[in-house]
Design a protein around this nucleic acid. Sequence first.
DNA 1: CCTAAGGACTGATGTCGATCAGCCCAGCAT
DNA 2: ATGCTGGGCTGATCGACATCAGTCCTTAGG
Lengths: 242, 242
Amino acid sequence: MIENTPLVRKLGAFVALLDPELSVLASLHKRRRTFVAGRDLVHQGQSDQAAYILASGWACSYKLLEDGQRQIVDFQIPGDFLGLRSVLLHVSDHSIEPVTDIEVTEVLAADLLKAFAQTPRLATAVLWAASRDEAMVVEHLVGVGRRDAAERMAHFLLELGGRLAWVGLGNTDGYACPLTQYHLADALGLSAVHVNRVLRQLREAGMVTFRDGFVAFDDYDQLIKFAQFDPSYMDQKGPFLP
Amino acid sequence: MIENTPLVRKLGAFVALLDPELSVLASLHKRRRTFVAGRDLVHQGQSDQAAYILASGWACSYKLLEDGQRQIVDFQIPGDFLGLRSVLLHVSDHSIEPVTDIEVTEVLAADLLKAFAQTPRLATAVLWAASRDEAMVVEHLVGVGRRDAAERMAHFLLELGGRLAWVGLGNTDGYACPLTQYHLADALGLSAVHVNRVLRQLREAGMVTFRDGFVAFDDYDQLIKFAQFDPSYMDQKGPFLP
DNA sequence: CCTAAGGACTGATGTCGATCAGCCCAGCAT
DNA sequence: ATGCTGGGCTGATCGACATCAGTCCTTAGG
């Protein structure tokens, strides 16, 4: 029997992966490595030979400005690629920090490109996955550009919840969330102080409570409405490349 | 002789395209169509069977919020895909508006997927191109999240200049730019009023002048420094998939 | 010829969120 | 037991940018 990793689940949503593809995919999983929370595994500007697939834990990718400010671009949860773009572009345009201790499997650039050459359907599947990730970055951009702090926070917590539900780590009641308020601030383009106030505001409005590493949706429907959250772009469609 | 379109030039930067790939690419170019400025060619929520490759003119992709605000995610210039993500994800999560009258060639979803299956290297090349585009959206996100209005504007104008230079439509002196101040506002997450003030400020500082559809870099080096612009992520690397 | 409309531009006023300057608590190390 | 550190939390002040309310100019249309 072929293994059923988070990645296989993710890609399988787009193309019905056949045995040859699955075995190529399995052959990619090389060394298993672990990293401790807080110590970057990739630095901006570094040129990389390997990408990783996140097996457990949370990470975030971010960019640093010269004045020391940082913008978190995305959080990665199990099943996500780390540093795929770095490999394709030959150099990392961002840094990656584990939010918690994490486990990853290493994928060598050469192996990945070879795998694409051998199994075009796999390349298409990865392209699709990358598109979904990009759609999320775009949504993030819209939030930072055009939503006020509270809407932005609400939207962010909902999206994260959707992604987690998606890999079995959450539901409409809530989810475990190891992020600090500083992480939220850097992701949402706010100050940590203001993040705190906004969280209080949402809590007092009876919509979400984020406390002790747990996000609880107190009134899911109201929150969706408040955030103008459109769940459709996160819908899982069945495979359409047979 | 195989044709040399902007797209071929773009993809050729990553993989050395061979004759079979080039002919598959050529076979993608189906109907040629034109659209007039201002009338959307793709609507948010619409499900699409076709993507386009922009042959001439400028377009922009944007998302609309319920309250009527809009965020422009990216501008497309000749050689760029329009709506590639819509095709891959089966539904468009954004709208596309031609900024000027444009010419495009249509690419049918089915043809594209078939082309990927036949020529894996082409799929890899498109994945690479998509990664570069995503890197740009990420940079955009950083700007909107963490830079003040003037830096944001400066950075944006430089990046656009880089992309245009890249397809032969500009250089370090400046470039023709059909955008209105409203476009800039919607792209940068500012009000049109403030865009105007910021442009004045940059002009009076002797860095850039944007006037009458033309962006002139008055002091390129100073502007780069001011914007903390890192040109490296736009560097053209030679092909590395032989 | 006159009007309408879009785009650039400006001053006055208002507000959202940053910044500054702190307190409190839990866990951990000396 | 006593600091120290990281994270959560809070009030006061300040500033960047939005909003409002216009003017001016050019082009297009009746």
